[in-house]
């Protein structure tokens, strides 16, 4: 990788200052995507601003019946959190299946969501649960957040500080991992909430998205059979070495059925 300046500010306010003053600065959270990218010389920031020193970005707390997770909380911490396991067990389970144990010890929820990798797990939960993304500037609804492949509603200098998840009645997540990278080929997060059923899909499109077809079927009957009966066309889904669009379309129904079966 190319060399860069390194900064570890102690507060969110300092982050904004650094990002404003350094021309080509990038924020690093857990670094699980950014550092491999830098190693491949696919990005060459002038400076790295490390969020690891900011205490206020860490931790899980109960809030308004749901839970709020600080942006720098690692996947392992979410997975093991008694609070998350009690309130939204599907979220704890999802966090425990991201990457591998070492990635879960470093990777953070804020980093994952801000990156909007098309095959990442968290975006499915954020969308599926109708979470709210809190930044240093505002609050953004999940439905307004994911804009495309590696594209979000975040503006320059805006960083995620926390994500608030309302408690669903029931939720489940199931993913079909890429056999090599273990990213999701298809991951489906389903949730039955007071406001209706939400079903979010990752891995299949340019970024996580909600499936109206699944939501409508599961709204009628929140059962694996209803999910499995949904037949999606292949149009618009990703094709790569490991999965065709048609296969992904099929897996969405299968994973949705498994997510519903596992939902608690």
């Amino acid at each position: 990788m190319h060399d860069f300046g390194y900064h570890r500010p102690a507060s969110v306010a300092d982050v904004a200052g650094l990002l404003a003053s350094k021309g080509e600065a990038k924020v690093v959270a857990g670094g699980m995507t950014l550092i491999p990218t830098l190693k491949q010389r696919l990005a060459s920031p002038s400076d790295l601003v490390d969020l690891a020193g900011i205490a206020e970005l860490k931790g899980v707390k109960a809030e308004g019946g749901g839970i709020t997770i600080g942006a720098m909380t690692t996947h392992a911490e979410v997975h093991r959190s008694a609070e998350v396991q009690k309130t939204i067990p599907a979220l704890a389970q999802l966090a425990g299946g991201i990457g591998d144990p070492q990635v879960r010890n470093r990777g953070t929820i804020g980093g994952s969501v801000a990156n909007s990798d098309p095959a990442a797990d968290y975006p499915a939960a954020v969308l599926g649960l109708g979470a709210t993304i809190r930044t240093n500037k505002r609050e953004i609804k999940a439905d307004d957040f994911f804009k495309g492949m590696f594209e979000t509603a975040l503006q320059d200098g805006e960083i995620i500080t926390a994500i608030h998840f309302p408690k669903p009645e029931k939720a489940g997540y199931s993913k079909f991992p890429n056999p090599a990278s273990r990213y999701a080929i298809v991951g489906v997060f389903v949730a039955r909430t007071a406001g209706g059923v939400r079903a979010a899909v990752t891995g299949a499109g340019p970024c996580a998205f909600r499936s109206k077809e699944l939501e409508s079927a599961l709204g009628g009957s929140f059962t694996p059979e209803a999910a499995k009966a949904v037949k999606l066309g292949a149009d618009g889904f990703n094709t790569d070495l490991h999965a065709t669009a048609a296969y992904r379309a099929h897996l969405i129904s299968v994973m949705a059925a498994r997510a519903v079966a596992a939902a608690s």
């Binding site: 690093v28 550092i35 491949q40 591998d100 144990p101 070492q102």
Partner: peptide
């Protein structure tokens, strides 16, 4: 490896296993 897959570089940092190829020394 150079894509954080193989785990030959795993060490413990503050008691947790991490891939030391995906962590800067300054971090």
């Amino acid at each position: 490896c150079d894509t954080s897959q193989c785990g030959a570089c795993v060490v413990h940092v503050d008691g947790r296993a991490v891939k030391s190829c995906t962590l800067l020394a300054v971090q």
